[in-house]
Design a protein around this nucleic acid. Structure first.
Lengths: 271, 271
DNA sequence: CTTGACTCTCCCCCCAAGGGAAGGTTTAGA
DNA sequence: TCTAAACCTTCCCTTGGGGGGAGAGTCAAG
């Protein structure tokens, strides 16, 4: 006969758990001193205790274990284990789905971090051609969200980069702008109202704007000053790439928004 | 401004949960009527509510969500998500391990069920050769458990069938028996004290004994009677296969124990 | 003005499997 | 005999809410 502490050491079950199992009628001590209430466990209970440990490691609930250990019918045990297996596997599927979402979220975030430049100067560079899905719109810029949503709904996981906007106006227009909301995609697909095509490579002058969209005009001024100073000829459409913006999930902090301005240029003879 | 009920309908969060989120300072109503205590949510909170729903679906605890949504530092968000991902993946690994154990257990049980014969008669059959790991022992039969344990510890997942015992005595001995505890295995392996070898095919007379080991002698009597009646010559070692016994985990019900007795025979000229 | 639908705050209990602490009794060894 | 360790019960705490109810106040439409 062991006392709780001894039995705990032998079986590896905590004293707390032993008391709980007693209360739940799962593992009842062989003898309980009527005076002191001390629990005493017979050696033969070690076996049952081990079975309980084994089944608890399989994360079976106490109720189930009680049914299993008290049943003499092996078939019933098998059924209980199978049903538990179903439960576990369902849970695994849930968690895997969560893990996939997390993976997706994190890789998205990482891509943004990787694209975050360390310098915010006007630069010249060439872009390569890319496949985009776009929706040409006229009106106020703030309408662009609808366009992005529509493209995102249609292309979902085929999206291969941050959303961007093409500006076809040669002058600034507030309320009647001509622009195209577009998102780089991996595959072409025919969707009503969405124009999928290749955006050509180009030589451009670029500047990454950090901060809220309200201050974009400052950055535009800088870029155009550079273009003029160099004597380049700006063409259209100009591009705005929303490296980091409000996003689908978090509004984020507008102070950290990153927007790349790309002005396509033809290098004049003076270049 | 929405009342709780309306906001609940809009966001899909239950009223109970909205109150909880308020209490936990996760989603604080835009306005609380000082007289009535009614909660009113501004449209702009829908966005935060959606983010909360999204993050809850990723099974983030409320405390974490609070930290994430209240932080302006994107890096911190990424860190939090990554740490959560670690947690989730650790949990998945745990559950997969549990699922493997369950799978193992169930397939084991199924094999036993499949091997359960529908008739318990003396029969003649031939067995095929099999690879076994065995420990030859002398003494009392009850010592065999140690042998099985040792083999099991060494061969674990290479076990390919139920344990068995070879009896080398030609007469019945209680206390000084000569026997070999062995288990069929998939692969050979050199282990001190364990003899791995091929058990040859043989022609035998067999009977599946159902019930506790104490009554095995009745079944032995039946088998030997059959052998003698047929005029066969029994040879040794005889085999006892523990199709269903106390097992590693459950003692089970001795009334359901299944033990196959195999007596190797040479068919005499009279057969 | 009434009435039915909403909402409020408290309150309690529930899930699973214990953990932790408080406060009191018993045992075992020196 | 004394003292420390072991043991007892009882109560509250954990996650993330769900469920229900009491009792009271409020809102909006007819």
């Amino acid at each position: 006969m062991f006392s709780v502490g001894e039995f705990s050491r032998v079986t590896g079950i905590t004293v707390k758990a032993l008391r709980l199992y007693h209360e739940q009628q799962l593992l009842i001590p062989s003898h309980i001193d009527p005076q002191t209430g001390y629990r005493y466990y017979h050696e033969s209970l070690i076996e049952r205790a081990r079975a309980i440990v084994y089944l608890r490691n399989l994360e079976l609930p106490i109720e189930q274990i009680k049914l299993i250990l008290n049943s003499t019918d092996d078939d019933h045990i098998l059924t209980a284990m199978q049903s538990h297996q179903q439960t576990i596997e369902a849970r695994i599927r849930e968690l895997c789905s969560v893990a996939r979402s997390l993976e997706h979220f994190i890789s998205q975030e990482r891509r943004v971090s990787a694209m975050t430049p360390t310098h915010f100067d006007v630069q010249e560079k060439s872009t390569s051609a890319m496949l985009i899905a776009g929706i040409r719109m006229k009106g106020h810029y703030s309408e662009c969200g609808k366009g992005f949503s529509k493209i995102f709904r249609s292309f979902g996981r085929f999206v291969s980069g941050p959303p961007m906007m093409l500006h076809y106006d040669t002058e600034y227009k507030e309320n009647d702008a001509d622009f195209e909301a577009c998102i780089p995609v991996k595959q072409s697909k025919t969707v009503e109202g969405i124009n999928v095509r290749e955006l050509p490579a180009m030589q451009c002058v670029t500047l990454v704007h950090k901060g809220p969209y309200e201050k974009l005009s400052d950055s535009y001024a800088k870029v155009f000053k550079y273009v003029n100073d160099k004597g380049y000829i700006a063409s259209s459409p100009t591009r705005e790439i929303y490296i980091k913006g409000p996003g689908m999930i978090f509004r984020g902090n507008p102070k950290n928004y990153l927007t790349e301005i790309q002005i396509p240029v033809q290098l004049s003879s003076a270049g």
